[in-house]
Design a protein around this nucleic acid. Structure first.
Lengths: 261, 261
DNA sequence: CGTACCCTTGACCGCAGTCAATGGAAGTGG
DNA sequence: CCACTTCCATTGACTGCGGTCAAGGGTACG
């Protein structure tokens, strides 16, 4: 069984990692594009999910993998009294893997923010292909680790940052992801369909307080926001609100680590 | 190249997932044991890390994978002003994969809580072995997803639960992990070396408030704790403090999902 | 033009943080 | 074996960040 990878569109190749080091798949593709290309071949179905609707098939998530082809979605954890935590946002090229319901985790759903298209891949087909093309496993492992590190960022925002730090940091991260997955308009704005309630649910704040915090960032001149778009007008200032080394600005001098034992 | 898997000790087999469905590796091993067995074969070094010390080699994490053989460790994110967020606890059988430092994430370290032993595996060796034994990729993918879902649980605790819910929920999760990885004594206690500050740093509370919250749980009769051990004396009660369907008690009737579109 | 959805702002409140003091347990060195 | 230190748990008083409640306004869409 051979696989001709169809490239839908060349995207920036700035997303490889250690796991790609000995990949036998064309390295010119970003992880997102490789997943999309593979999904095009293996998917038994491309399902449309309307904005605001839930990806119902996620209830059977132990049998399928999902690759988002188009649209913005998010993982949702809802507590019985209505409190809600958004676990991750899912942009085109990201994949979602579920677990069995009996593994004692909080109940999840996957919801669409905008009209979305999801490729549904049977696990058995994916497993078979991985056996024939091990580098695919590397791609998925990389994607999985990427989601893990994104979750860590969210955790720091929710657990240990003040509201303004968390919001500023969140906007920096999401703007970067949106730019990578979708691209910017010529004036530097990116599509940004999240409402304030969703921002708050991602970092552990209420919509009201997100509103207050965004106002500070807007009046300070760090960002501009409108319905469905975001523009960072002063990255330096936004990074300061986010609190020092929030992104990329991490001093590269990590060499002073003392070796254990 | 063949791999003789040495089983250090049979553990409970309740940890497989979708990814294991067509595994060609003996299925009788738990994921933890499979990783430990593989680490024994591939590791170039078994490094000892003293309690309180840092895994210095994690600074080069893009070149290595780490499998914890013995001891308790944790991933640590420190903000410049001293605030700290524990991202995940790492028990025997868990693996750690790093990323390149320039990927604009919060700076991480990996620290030992107790004296620990870590197997260090060069990525190149692992990648080569995966090409020859694809099911290994499934095992790692499963482990990675497991860490992702654990992080989601932490995120809900930090973002959307009250202090007593978060602490109760955290104890339930960690006790379960400790039991799986290490086992219980005959009286139902598990090794639990975390200090209150570390509990707080994991779920976004201060040590002082963790202390107050633990007191409530102790006086209510839900738990007993001592230096280095934890015993859940009333699981039902603890689950109620954690807030309804916190673990396992999730009603299995997830069938009412409305399909999208 | 009406309705639904979302943003905005103000007043007030409470949960958890902060600051500080005390006590106990474990470890260490003389 | 006993001072001495260090680390950690505990408790109280006070503070403040962010939540809650409520009202009003803007915008898109049918």
């Amino acid at each position: 069984m051979s696989l001709h990878i169809v490239v839908p569109e060349a995207r920036s190749k700035n997303n490889f990692s250690v796991f790609d080091s000995n990949a036998s798949v064309p390295d010119v593709l970003s992880r997102e594009n490789r997943l999309v290309a593979i999904a095009d071949k293996l998917a038994t179905e491309h399902r449309h999910v309307s904005a605001g609707a839930e990806l119902g098939a996620f209830a059977d998530s132990e049998k399928f993998l999902f690759v988002v082809i188009d649209g913005w979605m998010f993982r949702n954890a809802i507590l019985e009294d209505g409190r809600r935590q958004i676990l991750d946002f899912i942009l085109p090229g990201d994949f979602i893997a579920g677990r069995r319901q009996d593994e004692a985790e909080v109940s999840q759903t996957v919801d669409a923010i905008t009209d979305s298209v999801v490729a549904i891949i049977p696990v058995c087909a994916m497993a078979q292909l991985i056996a024939e093309m091990p580098s695919l496993a590397m791609t998925m492992l990389e994607a999985s680790q990427s989601a893990l590190y994104a979750s860590y960022e969210n955790l720091v925002d929710a657990g240990r940052r003040t509201s303004i730090e968390a919001v500023a940091h969140f906007l920096m991260r999401m703007e970067k992801r949106a730019t990578q997955a979708i691209g910017q308009t010529e004036d530097g704005a990116v599509p940004f369909p999240l409402i304030q309630e969703q921002i708050g649910d991602a970092i552990g704040l209420t919509a009201v307080h997100v509103c207050r915090t965004l106002r500070k960032l807007k009046t300070a001149g760090a960002i501009e926001m409108g319905r469905g778009w975001l523009k960072i007008t002063d990255r330096q200032l936004l990074a300061e609100f986010a609190g020092a080394w929030s992104s990329g600005d991490v001093p590269a001098v990590m060499g002073a680590h003392r070796l254990a034992s």
